[in-house]
Design a protein around this nucleic acid. Structure first.
Lengths: 144, 144
DNA sequence: ATAAATTTAATTGTACACAATACAATTTTG
DNA sequence: CAAAATTGTATTGTGTACAATTAAATTTAT
């Protein structure tokens, strides 16, 4: 590859992933709008649908997001009555995030979304699964 | 796949790409910090290193970013004396973004970055090129 | 036990990201 | 040619992202 090509936008994997990430979020937007939540908020709900209750610290680790991002996001979800934020009685520093009934009920609506997304994309599911594995491997390589 | 699994975070390609995108930006950050620019600003400079002058509209199209994002970003780059923003004399609505000497000179520093990134990741270059193709295909599928 | 270090969450400040809107210039149409 | 539609950028408002700092509680070390 030419020395000059190294910098060319088209050759940059990072840009592709950056653009793909925003494009995917855009695909989700209209579906999530109906639920009244954003994509990062949806990720939080995905976690809580699997596990009723989780500490903020563990949530940060699971989503690779820091508390500065999640704190205001969770406060918005709390205002919408989707989650509850309670401090642990054992350790007052620890914040426990738990799902409300309203938040739990939303799962029934949300469960249709992944299929809708797959339908609107006309790609082979196998190819997507394969792509996911490769992206995950990259994530592992980045974090050593 | 189980009906419940559909919603599981681990199964979601979108989340992997979302997380990978942020992780990659994080890898770039220390290198770009030395140049005094952010990752999206670096993308703009990549375009201008290939093409001295471009309209805002074309820049938006190339980066898949809208003017609401690029306008303040370009103003910051202009303040740093990296780019110039001038209206076209033919059509006053058209904004021409061009690179300054200072911006052009930065290319010599920036040209080392991609190699540094590849070095810090210990992954096969072939695998990354392949991954890029697959992500690009997904982007095409999304935009039909 | 108590001072120092550590852990954890919240806060602050800067910078995207994008939908919605506003506005100005140009092009199209009747 | 004048009204309507379109085009292109800027502005506004909401919501992430994350580094840096602050503050509070716990743990460790003496």
């Amino acid at each position: 590859m030419d020395q000059n090509d190294v910098l060319k936008l088209e050759n940059q994997l990072c840009f592709s992933i950056y653009a793909a990430s925003r494009a995917i979020t855009k695909v989700y937007r209209p579906f999530l709008e109906r639920l009244g939540i954003t994509y990062p908020q949806y990720l939080v709900m995905l976690v809580l649908w699997e596990k009723d209750k989780i500490t903020l610290k563990d949530l940060c680790k699971k989503l690779y997001l820091d508390s500065g991002t999640l704190t205001p996001l969770l406060k918005r979800l709390e205002t919408m009555d989707m989650v509850k934020r309670v401090r642990s009685s054992e350790d007052e520093r620890v914040l426990c995030v738990s799902i409300t009934d309203k938040g739990r009920n939303m799962k029934q609506e949300a469960i249709k979304i992944p299929e809708c997304i797959l339908g609107s994309l006309n790609t082979d599911v196998r190819a997507l699964a394969n792509l996911k594995n490769e992206v995950d491997q990259l994530l592992i390589d980045i974090n050593e």
